[in-house]
Amino acid sequence: MSSRERQNFVKGLLFVSPWLIGFLVFTLVPVGLSLYYSFCDFSLIERDTAGKTQAIWVGTENYRQLFQDREFYRTLKNTGLYAILSLPAGMLVSIGLALMLNAPIRGQAIYRTIIFLPSLVPVVASAMVWMWLFNARLGFFNQLLATIGIDGPAWIGDKKWALPALAMMSLWGVGNTVVIYLAGLQDIPRDLYEAAEIDGAGAIRRLFNVTLPMLSPVIFFNLIMALIGTLQVFALPFIMTGGGPERSTYMYTQYLYEKAFAYLQMGYASAMAWVQLLIILGLTAFAFWTSKRWVHYQGR
């Protein structure tokens, strides 16, 4: 290293040091610790003869118990089902909205604001609002259905409807994604459309042959973000249903949280966290692998 390089190296490290320290303390060490804990029995309150709490190594016992745990499979299934319901619906709705909002029409700004606003609403507040909308007797939906003579379901109070209802309400917050899609749509060069039109392509063909392929990098980015977010879903079901009725909305992260902080099995919860991490990494890697086939990068 020349002296200039060394000087830059020190300077650079100094500037990024806040993040570096934070990364070590709040990411690297905790991730390592949680891997270690996942092989331990650790209850936070359990004290040894010296009055100290500590994690005791128990080998692969947590993982062995986890793979025999019915709740593990149940919460995994619920989370997966929720993802399958809400992810594609969310993508379709947000792309559709973005396409409509991209059209040069009057009142665009107002439309855009209204679609975007719900994504600003704090999760607890939106949970409250939707609990009220879903209320079996006094809720808006069932009162509306009652006016046309239909006895609505109990929504989040009915084990068949609860999960779809949660997925449905997740659409309310797509505003963020819509904005990202809109920005992506702006990036598509006009001449592509013009060329397609000269070739005699109709609106549908333009959508499938120009818009969607050109938008695919943005779709891919949103897919990955949504995947990571959806597989960790916690606050909404936790607040709205507490995982019920009959655990039909009991999600993986809620089970993990309860294992750790209600049942004080930190080791077991850490094992769960690692399984979750591996699943998310696996799915993301899979998405990257398939992306070669459907994501088109401009100028590449």
Binding site: V16, W19, L20, F23, V25, F26, T27, V29, P30, V31, L33, S34, Y37, F42, L44, I228, L231, Q232, F234, T253, L256, Y257, A260, M266, A269, S270, M272, A273, W274, Q276, L277, I280, L281, T284
Partner: peptide, 23 residues
């Protein structure tokens, strides 16, 4: 370092929740 930083965005909070708590 920059790539590592971007990668940390993918770590779900539940993974570090327990150990940050103990920390």
């Amino acid at each position: 370092l920059f790539s590592i930083m971007l990668a940390t965005m993918m770590i779900p909070f539940p993974v570090v929740m327990v150990s940050i708590f103990t920390l």
